Computed example of a mutant assay.
Amino acid sequence: MSVPKAFEPCKLVFGLLYLHRDVKARVLSALTELFGPLDAVSQPQDFTFTRFYEKEMGSGLLRLFGSFEELVDPVRLPEIKERTNLLEKQWANGKRRTINVDPGLLSEDRLVLATGKNAAHRIPLRDGIYADLTLLYREGAYRPLPWTYPDYAQEATRRFFGLLRGILTARRRGRAPRRSQSTKEMQL
C-alpha cells in the first residue's frame, strides 16, 4: 500500500512570449508582486517555432524563461495559472494578448506546465486547468516527450532548466543563496 506524503515544494518557473519590451518589463514586475523575487531569467530569443501566435500578437515575437526564488506547493498550480491568465487579460489590447505567460513547476524529476487546453497526455487539476507533463529528467538532463512544445524541447532551453534544477537542489539542501542570479539574464 502506498502511504500519501505531503508534496515537496517545486520551483515556480515561467515562459513569456511577447513583442514589446516595455510590456515584458511591466509583466515581470507584476509577476514579482504576485510570486516574489525572481532568481533567474534567460536572455530573450527569437520565437520561430510556430506562427500560431502571430495573428493575435504580431510577428517578431520573443521568448524568455525564468524562475522565482520561493518554492511553491504544487497544489497551487491552477491558482497560479488563473493569476497569470488575469495578467494576460490586463495587458491585452482589446481581445488580443500582448503577452503570453506560461507558468510551470520544476522538480528534480520533471517540468509540468499549466494549460487550459485539454489533450490526451494532460491531467485535469481543477476549474478547466490541466497539468502538461513537458520534460522528464533522465540520464543527467531534462528530456522532451513526443508532445513537448519545440521551444521547450530545444537543447538550450533544456540546459537552462538544468541550471534551474541545480538552484532547486541546492535550495533544498540549504546551500543556495537567495537571488543566485540576481535576476541577471542568463544565456540560453
Rank of each mutant, 00 (worst) to 15 (best):
R96N: 15
E108I: 12
Q187H: 09
N100T: 14
K24P: 06
Y152S: 02
N100A: 15
Q90D: 11
I80K: 01
R63M: 11
D39Q: 10
G116M: 12
L17S: 07
L87F: 01
L34Y: 07
G36M: 05
K11V: 05
L16Q: 04
Q90R: 13
V72R: 10
S180A: 06
S180F: 02
I129E: 09
I99R: 02
T32A: 15
S67R: 00
L168G: 03
K89D: 06
F49A: 03
G116C: 12
E79W: 02
R96Y: 14
L31R: 09
Q43L: 02
P4T: 09
L133M: 13
D132I: 03
P9L: 03
R63H: 14
G162R: 00
G60N: 08
G60E: 07
A141T: 04
K184M: 07
G140R: 03
I167V: 10
L168H: 04
L125D: 04
D22Q: 11
P9D: 08
N85L: 05
N93V: 10
D109L: 04
T157F: 00
V13W: 00
V75N: 04
L145R: 00
I123C: 10
G66K: 04
R158C: 12
G162N: 03
K24D: 14
Q187K: 09
R26E: 14
K55N: 11
P150V: 09
P37Y: 06
G58Y: 08
R159H: 04
G140H: 03
K89S: 06
L61M: 09
H121Y: 10
G60T: 08
M57A: 08
Y130E: 05
L64S: 06
G36F: 01
P146S: 14
P150T: 10
P150Y: 10
A170S: 09
S182A: 10
